[in-house]
Amino acid sequence: MMTCNEARELIPWYVAGSLSAHEVGELAVHVADCSDCRAQLARDVSLGIDLEGALKSLPGIPSGGFEKVSRQIKRLPSTGVDIGSFLAGLSVGLSARGSGAPLKADLKLLGYRIPLLGNEDKLGGQHDR
């Protein structure tokens, strides 16, 4: 059985969506039985949503960077970069990586229903602040 300290260390990685299925299972077993860690999980879910939103709001790279790189490697033409497709590529790249909060689905999959202290609607919600 996982200790509270072990659980506390894994919770943020669970919230970030990168724990292995095995670790998620062990964590779920612990959290189902431990109200303290359950409360921590709820706080971390909320923090995780905030962090994702904040990091996605960081400024993006200014345009024209690819042309500079092209010129330096002297292999690609230094003119004629299609800015439209350049921007489209960036947005596709970004949207493909949104991880969201995997929490509810994963825990339910394992047959547990973990109450999240009123964070239910926040969990499924968008970053609309």
């Binding site: 990091l55 960081l58 400024p59 993006g60 790279i61 200014p62 690819f66 590529g89 960036l90």
Partner: peptide, 26 residues
Amino acid sequence: HRFYDEYANRVFRYALTLLRSRHLAE
């Protein structure tokens, strides 16, 4: 070019997080 499109912004934000300077991140 596709590789750049996929990674430039991600690397930029990573560098920005580390160095806290847009100029250096570029």
